[in-house]
Amino acid sequence: MRAALEAQRDTLLDARAAALAARSPEAERTVATEGFLVCACGSERVGLPLTAVAGVTPLPPCTALPGAPTTLRGICAMSGTIVSVLDLSACLGLGTGAEDGHLVRLRAQEPAMALAVERVVGIARIEARPADSLGDGPLLGYVPPGSDRTGDVRDGFSILDLPALLARFLT
């Protein structure tokens, strides 16, 4: 068993070395792509525009606010500022999210906002954003699986209309 594990490890390391040594064909082509931070909310995958994201941290403990809607999980102190934490699963109508997920801080919002997600899967780069909107929700479109040029995100995901979401919340 030990020999089998060692053989598997060796195979893995060899494959990693070969992959790093080889020149990727996608890198040769300079195609204009758009980056999305893909997050998991339950069984759904949601992509946030990478430009709107300030950073990813583990979800800190939040202080709940009395009288707040279920979509507002609470507030927490982060880097000296008070950040309002929105539950993305609740905002999308997928139920309350997990307590020990990840927190996605957003850029240039006033007040400072962050989204609590179950997990941040990775960064996807797609060539063209689909233009059609998905119903009346805060989703802009659906990216089918295999659209990621980096290969980090294999599943398909929906693109979140972040301004619409925030506008709904702020109003």
């Binding site: 931070l37 990478l50 300030a54 950073g55 990813v56 941290t57 941040v120 990775g122 960064i123």
Partner: peptide
């Protein structure tokens, strides 16, 4: 997470 932040 660090890698993600770096990517961001």
């Amino acid at each position: 997470l660090l890698a993600l932040n770096a990517a961001i």
